[in-house]
Every structure is written in structure tokens, then in C-alpha cells.
Simulated scan of single mutants.
Amino acid sequence: MPANHYRHTRHYHGPVQAIIFDWAGTLVDFGSFAPTQVLIDAFQGFGIAISMTEARVPMGLAKWDHIAALGRLPAVDARWREKYGFSMRREDVDALYAAFMPLQIERVAHYSTVIPGALPVLATLRARDIKLGSCSGYPRAVMDRLLPHARSQGLVVDHAVATDDLKPGGRPGPWMALANVIELGVSELAACIKVDDTVPGIEEGLAAGMWTVGLSLSGNEVGLSASEVCDLDAEALQQCRAGAVAKLSRAGAHYVIDSIADLPAVVDAIALRLAHGERP
């Protein structure tokens, strides 16, 4: 008889205990412009032009990793080699990161208006005794500027992890999400939901054993401001939504919604699945 014949499969039937949110494109900064525009400006300081589309490709990674990934894009690599005679080296990434950081700290608040619907949704979740965690590709120095700015707008979470708070590294690894689990005292990973607008953020939640919810219109994949999204006609809006939904779904998102404003219905759906013993 196989050794695992009597193995008991454990099923959790309790409620959703915690939701772990990303920041830019999820809770604040509709369209996720703070990281991208500042990266464009940092590269420009080195005489390298990158487009907004290129800047968005590695979004969700820790910012040092984001810069390194941008340098590996074939078109960006070609421009770097044309100017400097070699591909971007580690010391070049360090120099770009050093230029990027003060710009990001200075400007993050400018872009980080709370996304419409976030405040009432967080209030609804708190009323259900759901704990509110968060993590970001931003380093701690940027989070220390962002958190008080968010608080001034009424947005407060129970815990926030920055990408350089932990030695193992950032996304797509599970460490920041799991650090929230420990700090918040969550007893079951299946009782957690990770909400993010990027592929690495979805992969982070999956690696941590959580339900994952992707955000299409408010985040990096569409990359438009709230007013620009409102100005789209029905056909253009659906095209933007469809492309983002497809990419986040391919990454493994269990659900994809337009923005945090649509989250309560998904939380209800996941709660029902948990009650039936389902796991992510």
C-alpha cells in the first residue's frame, strides 16, 4: 500500500483573513505613473531615451531589478551600446539606481492620489474584520514618503513591506507577501488574497499560496490616467481591458477586475469557495 494512502487532506472552511495590496496602480497612482516617469527621467540623465511602454515592461519588480531588466531589453541595450560601447553593467545599474532614488522620493507623493473607490472598499473590508497588508516594489525610503501621504488622504493599512526590507529579495518571490502574513498573524495562507496590477505581483501571490486578483484598468497594463480611461469610447475601453485581462490571466490571476472599487464582490466569491473547502 502506498505510504501516502492514509494522508489526510486538510481543508480550510473559514473566512478571508487578510488581503495583501500592492501600492502604485492598486491603492494609489491610477495608471502607475510614479515609477515609470521617474525611470524615464533617470535614464535620460544618462543620455538614454526610453519610452513609457518600455519603462512599463518590468513593472512590479524591485526598482534595482527593474532598471537592470530595462537594460536587458534589446532596444534599450542597443541604445546603451551605441552610446557607451558596451551593454549595461552592474555598476551602471547601481549608478542609475542612485540617480533614480532621490527623484522617486521627491516625486512619489505628486503621483500618488488614492484610486477612486479605495477608501470605501478598505472601510468595508475592515468592517468584516479582514486585515489589510501591503507590499511594493518601492524601497523603504520611498515608502516612508508614500505612507504619510496616503494617510493624509485617509488611506491606512495595517502593515506595509518595502522591497528592501527583506534579504531574500522582492517579486516574483513570495517573501513580502509572507512577511505580511507573519506580521498580521494570519493562520492560513488560503485565507489570504493578493491584489496587484502587475505580472510579478500576481506571481508573488501565487508563490505565497494565496488567491490572486489582478487589476486591469487602474494599473500598469493599461497605463492611462483615470481621466484618460473615462475619455475612451466603449470599443477602445474594451480593447484596453481585454489586453490587460489576458496578460494577468496568463500570469495565473484567479480573478481580474477593473480596479479596487470592484474588489468586494470578488472577496465574496472567494469567501464562498473557502466555505466549500476550496484552496487557491
Rank of each mutant, 00 (worst) to 15 (best):
N180Q: 03
P174V: 12
Y255K: 01
G60N: 11
G170S: 12
F86W: 10
T36D: 09
V121Q: 04
V195M: 11
V267Q: 02
D231M: 14
L232T: 04
A24N: 13
R126I: 07
P174C: 09
S87R: 14
P280W: 08
V108C: 09
G85Q: 07
E188K: 10
R7L: 14
R10N: 05
G205L: 00
L178Q: 08
P58H: 11
Q37T: 13
E82N: 14
D94H: 14
Q37P: 00
L96T: 09
I67N: 05
D144W: 09
P15C: 04
I193P: 07
E188T: 15
G133Q: 06
R128V: 04
H11M: 08
A141E: 15
D196S: 15
M1D: 09
G277E: 01
L272P: 00
H13Q: 02
V16C: 01
C135G: 10
F100R: 05
V222W: 04
V108G: 01
L132E: 04
W211P: 03
R89T: 15
G205K: 01
R89M: 14
A269G: 05
G173F: 08
F43I: 08
A99P: 00
K131N: 05
A162P: 02
L73H: 08
N4K: 13
L237V: 06
A34Y: 04
S216L: 05
I48E: 01
G60R: 11
D94C: 07
L206K: 13
L224A: 04
R128P: 03
V229T: 10
G219C: 10
V256K: 02
L122R: 07
G170D: 09
S225G: 14
G185V: 08
Q37C: 10
Y138H: 07
C230I: 11
A109Q: 14
M52H: 15
A55C: 10
T212A: 06
Y97H: 12
P15W: 00
D29F: 04
A99E: 10
P35A: 08
A261L: 03
R241P: 00
V222D: 01
V161N: 02
G14D: 00
P116L: 03
I257Y: 02
C230Y: 08
H13A: 02
G85E: 03
A69E: 14
P102Q: 07
I193K: 11
F46P: 00
A3R: 12
D22Y: 05
G71I: 15
I20H: 02
I182Y: 10
R90M: 09
E91F: 10
P15E: 06
D129S: 15
S152W: 06
F46I: 03
R241S: 02
Y6E: 06
A251W: 07
L178S: 05
Q37G: 03
V121L: 08
N180S: 02
T113E: 11
R81F: 02
P102V: 11
D258Q: 05
K131R: 15
